[in-house]
Design a binder for these strands. Structure first.
Lengths: 172, 172
DNA sequence: AATCACCTACCTATCAGTTGATAGCTGACA
DNA sequence: TGTCAGCTATCAACTGATAGGTAGGTGATT
């Protein structure tokens, strides 16, 4: 039952992470999955519904992955860095929410809001491990996450994933 | 002669910085400028031509602005930070090339290449003021530019431009 | 056991609107 | 007379979305 839905979400996530919200169509997703575009509409009535579902799943999976890596003994910042680097190395894929945030005014509000929630989760996840006061912790979380997002952007654009490591080498 | 061309480039830059390459059309640009879409094609035969010209002008203007601010006595990093913050404050506008880089696989190669050139210019501009060896200077330039780009992304997505200042407060 | 209503998960066919792009015309100006 | 900078009109392709059909399954009623 959910397996087709997952396949649709997988295809949509892949396409969005490559070309953004306005860079994919229902017909492309349908072709990827092996069904017709009307069937994609059956599971996700509108394009906004589909993209929002993709972003929501992305955020939830990320939270789980952070918890899992940390349970394995990695520090919080190292965990975030590793997760981003892995997805970059795996298939040159940027952070989904980074792309959605970049083209913010061109995506439905419900989608931009999911991206916003991802960043809020990320900033507070990283800020949490700072022993400083509230404002300095916030600044710390923002600084780390901003650097990671920007490093993915630069590495992708300049076509060299090792630049991600160089750009983030001093983070701790 | 060039005044209409400039108006077209202005409109295209504004639209791309809000919704990306796939988030604008010739008809929208034409409406913004007050002409017909066929007239936009007269000046820029294809969409790729137009977007590449926008990105090229953006890079050149940025280089000039950096030189000008520095002549006025500001440090290199402070200059880059100020230029990005100003464009964010002015009209919630992200870095043009940050957006084009994010949706890289969805834009024509000639456009992605202009974005790449912007980042190469930026990284070496910032790396230049480092007194360290080649690799460390590169890492320094990458780190600063990545943080600035990511800070714009976060501030825009979270709807609060002061977050840009918080995220970049420790850069020097 | 057989009929019935209902559901899920697809399908075909089609819609109006938008897209980038082209051909060919017009008027202004040198 | 050309060239420039617009224009009208049109194109095929693609877009998100909808209507309506169908095959197969579930579960209750008869």
């Amino acid at each position: 039952m959910t397996e087709r839905v997952d396949a649709i979400l997988d295809a949509a996530e892949n396409r969005i992470r490559r070309a953004g919200y306005n860079g994919f169509s229902f017909r492309e997703i349908a072709t990827d999955v092996g069904i017709k575009s009307a069937s994609v509409h059956y599971h996700f009535p509108t394009k906004a519904d589909l993209a929002a579902a993709v972003a929501k799943r992305y955020r939830e999976r990320f939270e789980e992955a952070v918890a899992k890596n940390e349970a394995a003994g990695a520090g919080r910042v190292e965990t975030w860095k590793t997760l981003f680097r892995d997805s970059l190395a795996e298939d040159n894929r940027m952070c989904l929410c980074g792309i959605l945030a970049a083209e913010k005014e061109g995506v439905p509000e419900v989608v931009a809001d999911e991206a916003r929630q991802f960043f809020e989760m990320g900033v507070s996840s990283i800020a949490e491990v700072s022993k400083d006061n509230a404002e300095n912790s916030l600044a710390y979380g923002l600084n780390i996450l901003a650097t990671l997002e920007g490093a993915m952007l630069l590495a992708q654009s300049m076509g060299d994933n090792t630049l991600f490591d160089l750009a983030t080498a001093n983070l701790k």
